[in-house]
Structures are given as C-alpha cells and as structure tokens.
Write a protein that binds this DNA or RNA. Structure first.
Lengths: 139, 139
DNA sequence: GTAACTGCAAAATATTTGCATCCTT
DNA sequence: AAGGATGCAAATATTTTGCAGTTAC
C-alpha cells in the first residue's frame, strides 16, 4: 500500500510528503467519503488545518479526489476512480448519503442514466446523490 | 400574487412579515434557485443578513424551499413544488446549474429515473444536478 | 397583550492568504 | 541548491446565538 500511494503521488507530480501520504492512506483505508473535519480527527490533528486544506486542494486539482455535493452542504471528498484527468472529473456514479450515520459512499456499480434535457441545455457534468438508510443503519 | 404569498405563509402557520413576503416574491418571480447572497442583493440589502438566514431556515423547516446540492458546493435554495410536507422533501425533478452565468433552474419536466440500488440501501431522497451551459449561455 | 420576528452585536466556524522555515528532489 | 510544502499568524468569510426592541395577530 505504501508503494501504491507513492506511485499515485509521483504519477501526479506531487512530492511525497508525510501529510499527503497520511491523508491518502485515510482515503484508501475506507470505502467512503471524508469531510475536512474527519480528516483532521483521523490524523489526530497532527497536521495544520491549513495543510489539510491545501492538500485536499492539490488532490482536487490533480484529479485524485473529487467533492460530493450533499443536500446539507457539508463538503465531502472521495477518491476518483480512474479517468479523472487534471482539471476534469468524470464521476458518473451515484453517491449515497446515509441520513442516520452520515456515511457517504460512492456506489461505483450504479451508473447514472443518461438524461434527455430540454432543447438548449448542454450538459457537462451530472451529479446524483441519493440519501436514505445505508446497509448498516437499515431499520 | 400577493394573495398567493400570504396564503402560502398562512398555510404553514408563519406570520406574514415584510422579509418573508419579499423573499418569497423573489423565489416566485424567477424560475430558478437562489443563493443566500443573491437574496441579499436582490432585496437591496434591506434585511439583515441574520434575518435572511432565519427566514430561509424557517422556509426549509416548513417545506417551502429546499436546498440544491451543487458540484461546487455553493448552497442554493429553490421552491418546493408541492408535496413537500414539513420535514419531508420530495423533489424528483432535475436541477440544472449553468457553469457560465451560475443560474440554477429546476427542470420540472425532466423526471429523475428510478435507480436500482445495491441490496441494503433504502433511498429516501434523490437529488440530481446537471451542470453545463444553459439556453442563454449556449456557445 | 402575547408570541413571534427582527436587527444589532458578538461569538463561533470555516476558509484563505502571506511569509518565514523546512523538506523533497 | 532550488522549488515546493508546511506551520503559524492573521485576514476574510460564513453561520449561529443572545437579547432587547418591534411587529403580527
């Protein structure tokens, strides 16, 4: 895993630093999305808040992670699967937010269906967020 | 229109005040979504920022408006069409955010297709936001 | 008249920026 | 050695809270 992380950073021409490795580990360790606060907590507040902001920002720019828009507007970040180029994100999978535990996951296996828009609208990105109860919190 | 607004407020047991009427007018006047800042500007900063927050909050609680999650995580509010009960929002139409002009509209005529989720996930609300170029900004 | 709403001040949060220092390559 | 990354301090921006005065009903 160590090596994979280093490769990922190298691939994107980012220098390998402790904070970046640690934060990437977090993302790889769990199958969900993380909020800024989660990251601070799970790194034991080891890194400066600003560093976390900047790290996330550079991961975003490089197409390593993407944000998940939620109805309650808490910003969550998740790993991009693959074909996200620099500056372009192509996540066409559905995101699921659990109303109970707050966990946010990418349902990679669920593809967003193509939508026919009214004349004149040119779609570029489609986001689909479903909220409800996740497997663990299911009544 | 005046009467309709008053009815709407009465229906939700909210007292009829200037700020509420004015803000509702804004929502009714345009077919799109509004960010907090838009509302401040378009009311000519007539109302205190805090009042706007609280007004939006109470409209949310009553199911008069709902938030739209956008890819850039800016909070937008839009009128709920009808069957949003207190605490429950049932918007099943697509939202479109223009990358150029920032306008957000509800595409009421475009219905969100039903999505089959993996076993164990129980959906309650589905949000679908498409971004791109709108009719006006079309290249 | 009473309860609810507003505006102001201020607190609490969240995010961004500048700069000197330190680390990676 | 050079450029980039970090941490700290501080500037901004955003949202929430308390409270006294005002308004709706």
């Amino acid at each position: 895993m160590e090596a994979a992380i280093q490769d990922l950073l190298k691939k994107h021409r980012l220098s390998i630093t402790e904070s970046r490795v640690k934060i990437l580990e977090l993302f790889l360790a769990q199958q969900g999305a993380l909020a800024h606060g989660d990251i601070e907590k799970r790194t034991g507040e080891k890194f400066d808040r600003v560093t976390v902001y900047r790290t996330l920002q550079s991961f975003m720019n490089k197409g390593i992670i993407h944000t998940i828009p939620t109805a309650d507007n808490s910003i969550r970040y998740a790993l991009c699967k693959d074909n996200c180029a620099e500056g372009h994100h192509h996540d066409n999978h559905v995101h699921f937010v659990c109303d109970d535990c707050g966990n946010t996951v990418c349902l990679d296996e669920v593809t967003i269906p193509t939508i026919k828009l009214p004349l004149g609208f040119t779609p570029k990105q489609v986001e689909m967020v479903i909220s409800g109860k996740c497997r663990e919190c299911k009544g």
